[in-house]
Simulated scan of single mutants.
Amino acid sequence: MAYKTILTVLSNETQTAQLDAAIAAARKEDAHLEVFCLGVDHAQAGYYYAGASAYVFQEAIDKALDAAEQLEKFVRGKLEAEEIRWSTESAVAQVGGLTTLIGMRARFADLVVLGQPYAESAPAEAEAVTEAALFEGSAPVLIVPEGGLPQNFGNKILVAWSQTEEAMTSVRRALPLLKRAESVEITVVDPSPNGPERSDPGGALSQMLSRHGVNVEIAVLARTLPQTSDILSQRATEIGADLIVMGAYGHSRFREAILGGTTRSMLSKSNLPVLMAR
């Protein structure tokens, strides 16, 4: 399997690192790049008193339409100079309607490239877009840090292994990258001695990947820091990894939003690209 359709979703012209990363990924994979330009109507009808003028709603829609058209024009100007296959589309939606709109497009993409949803420069709807691609689109999502993709992206990959369904799904979706990597490390943090792999954490996964020709090693780490995300980030730095592959949202989105979790922490802090799936 290869990534032959790559989707990225933009809602303003400041998301240049994300767009550049999507272009680079399409070039690397010899894939078709789809750029979805989003105009977001932030006016929620439920917030207006009964009898409010229809002009209020129409003005919000007009602004969103104009923003989407301007963004698509900007994207076309950038892509016309690129030697890749590409297409653009624009649409307008209210924040509450993003889920279906993004999910339907992500469903037919092999890979979705997005920016960090919790970065300071991220647009307000970034979190909703990311979750729609992961949950409604069931697509693997490559989260790109503000600095963009590393120069040797995909050479050294850290796989965060936790014996969960989400972790296994992420590995399967990352296979095209894992097979081309120079080296892959399966990193297991504080595995349970009573878990399904018991005394051989990561062993079965290592065997599976080796049969695909992946150059793989296993590292079992103690819990030396309070958060798993911090341990993974520290390990990635130590081994010179340029990509982290991990499962997304082992807990509910609501629980992670309120209490925090590995997914949310990685999406907030990581200075490396992270490929997530569930």
Results as ranks from 00 to 15, higher is better:
178 L>N: 02
128 A>G: 07
180 R>V: 07
144 V>A: 04
21 A>L: 12
45 A>N: 10
64 A>K: 05
144 V>T: 12
71 L>V: 04
88 T>H: 04
218 I>C: 08
93 A>Q: 13
130 T>F: 11
40 V>M: 07
215 N>T: 14
77 G>D: 09
269 K>P: 02
122 A>H: 09
237 T>S: 14
256 E>A: 01
197 E>I: 01
161 W>Q: 00
41 D>H: 02
119 A>G: 11
14 T>Q: 11
172 R>P: 09
266 M>C: 05
263 T>S: 14
29 E>L: 03
205 L>D: 01
142 L>V: 04
235 R>L: 08
55 Y>D: 12
277 A>W: 02
271 N>R: 15
102 I>Q: 03
60 A>V: 05
37 C>I: 03
80 E>N: 12
200 D>N: 07
8 T>F: 03
144 V>Q: 05
179 K>A: 13
106 A>L: 07
212 H>A: 11
28 K>I: 06
257 A>R: 07
13 E>A: 13
251 H>W: 01
236 A>T: 03
124 A>E: 09
19 L>H: 07
6 I>L: 11
5 T>G: 05
250 G>Q: 06
107 R>H: 15
71 L>K: 00
66 D>Y: 07
78 K>F: 04
110 D>F: 12
275 L>T: 02
208 M>E: 12
269 K>T: 12
137 G>E: 08
220 V>R: 06
127 E>D: 10
159 V>F: 03
132 A>S: 13
182 E>C: 01
50 A>S: 08
135 F>Y: 11
84 I>K: 05
248 A>L: 03
8 T>N: 06
164 T>V: 02
30 D>R: 11
15 Q>S: 07
102 I>W: 06
10 L>T: 05
32 H>A: 12
112 V>K: 03
14 T>A: 10
7 L>D: 06
40 V>K: 02
36 F>A: 10
143 I>K: 00
28 K>T: 06
70 Q>K: 14
269 K>F: 09
119 A>F: 02
20 D>V: 09
134 L>K: 00
250 G>K: 05
65 L>D: 12
150 P>E: 05
13 E>N: 03
249 Y>D: 09
75 V>D: 04
186 I>Q: 00
129 V>G: 04
84 I>R: 04
261 G>E: 04
235 R>P: 03
252 S>A: 02
36 F>P: 01
102 I>H: 10
24 A>L: 13
28 K>Q: 14
152 N>E: 15
176 P>N: 11
114 L>M: 13
98 L>D: 08
168 M>F: 06
234 Q>M: 09
41 D>A: 01
214 V>T: 09
108 F>Q: 14
249 Y>L: 09
271 N>S: 15
235 R>T: 01
100 T>R: 14
278 R>M: 04
173 R>T: 06
136 E>A: 13
80 E>P: 02
181 A>M: 00
32 H>T: 15
263 T>Q: 01
